[in-house]
Nucleic acid binder design. Structure first.
Lengths: 243, 243
DNA sequence: GCCGTTGCATTGTGGAACGATCTAAGCTAA
DNA sequence: TTAGCTTAGATCGTTCCACAATGCAACGGC
């Protein structure tokens, strides 16, 4: 309810560049704009019916969030994760998630409730076979882990990092089957944290992150192989594949 | 040398947004633009001889870094830290600095060398009585602590948080005398980390952060008292005090 | 087949303009 | 006098247009 009204407010009164950034972000994270898709500002400004300046502002936002790259004098493009990017993401995950678990004795009760709620949501998504929500729900659990720090800036930062991780999910053929096995492990970690077994939870999480990183790197590497042949741009006024 | 050329390159070829953002950031962090200073885009665009669009881009950057506030339909202004802001900053510092210390066994040797170098730089600043550099040098030590994670994104994030902290330093009357006492404590923490005494280093750092937070909150609170009477804007074409 | 040249698309930035909105001054009325 | 309303000006948010700078791809010479 409060969340609905908040979304509505932002959609209505937010500045145009933020609205457009949100729209593009959604398209990217839903996988409708696969990594590598070129985002030409003239085309997008026409599509969203805003001036080029405004659209560029939205692209700058997404660039800062790490969802797109925006080189000088070149088109913006949806970021294609490299293996190094994935390693960096998991460096952050290890630092923050393990740190938050070590520190979980200082977390308030609400934070533990939030953990439970997110795991339950992920399990619900699995049982309802809402496969495309499973990955997001699982990430929300890990967001809740880091949320135990109680710091809004860390939450925002980590949220951006996980958004980048979803770039990798977006190119998976069968995301559902890849995501599902992690949920029981989330449940187990959640239980250990709530029971106060910090060392156990940390050990399990470390293993979880190692396994997950390996898996994601494999996907990214496989994709690198596929995209060895560079997609060449159309000349003149050809209608451009990627939407 | 390499750093010089890098700075030169950026100053020459970087987009105008970034150049101006850098200039304003420097002015703010040096204390030339005290918190609360209004940053009117029309005036600044004239001053920097760029279009308003370009300048607004720079302001958006600084807004994202948390150095200025930029409300809808109101002037941007240098951020005035509240006590809550300070608490948030120290939540981040506790999470990352203590986490990095706990994790320091996994850090490479270079990271320990970097620690040593930054502490030495701070001590040099003290002995050379370069008072206005002491605070920056000390913060660089803490940046180096977090650097032990080996994650560039965490480094960037933490760098932004410490920049916000410098907003509080900027309003201090005698920053030098405030900063100096912390350097010996930095030295002690550095020694404990390098000797592998993680628990000791963590305990000392925790106490350090508690003391530091108290001090900064006092400064911020005192400033809040002073600024109870709002500075009213000039009408018409009065030349505006700030900068 | 390789390499420089050239032309076009696209980006980077500047400038002017207009409506929207906020702030402050001025005015009216109790 | 003072509270409240009105109004004018300043500033922001956005758009449109223009032009130089840059990069990319096709073209042509060797």
């Amino acid at each position: 309810m409060t969340e609905d009204s908040e979304i509505f407010d932002q959609a209505a009164s937010a500045p145009a560049d933020e609205r457009i950034a949100r729209a593009l972000r959604d398209r990217i994270l839903e996988g409708h704009l696969p990594p590598g898709t070129q985002l030409r500002d003239s085309r997008l400004s026409a599509e969203f019916a805003v001036a080029r300046h405004t659209l560029r502002g939205a692209l700058r936002r997404l660039e800062h969030e790490g969802l797109i790259v925006y080189p000088m004098h070149k088109s913006a493009a949806v970021k294609t994760l490299t293996a190094d990017d994935v390693h960096e993401i998991y460096r952050v995950r290890r630092a923050l998630e393990l740190g938050a678990i070590e520190n979980s004795s200082a977390a308030p009760a609400e934070a533990f409730e939030a953990l439970e709620a997110t795991v339950y949501a992920a399990e619900s998504a699995v049982s309802q076979e809402a496969w495309n929500h499973v990955g997001t729900a699982s990430l929300r659990f890990h967001q809740a882990i880091v949320g135990m720090f109680g710091s809004v800036s860390i939450d925002q930062f980590f949220s951006g990092v996980l958004a980048q991780l979803r770039l990798a999910f977006a190119v998976m053929k069968d995301e559902a089957q890849w995501q599902t096995p992690w949920v029981p492990r989330d449940r187990e970690i959640c239980g250990l944290i709530r029971s106060g077994n910090r060392a156990g939870a940390a050990a399990l999480t470390r293993q979880y992150l190692d396994d997950s990183e390996r898996g994601v790197v494999d996907v990214v590497r496989a994709n690198e192989m596929n995209q060895r042949r560079p997609v060449r741009r159309r000349r003149a006024n050809a209608p451009e594949g990627g939407q």
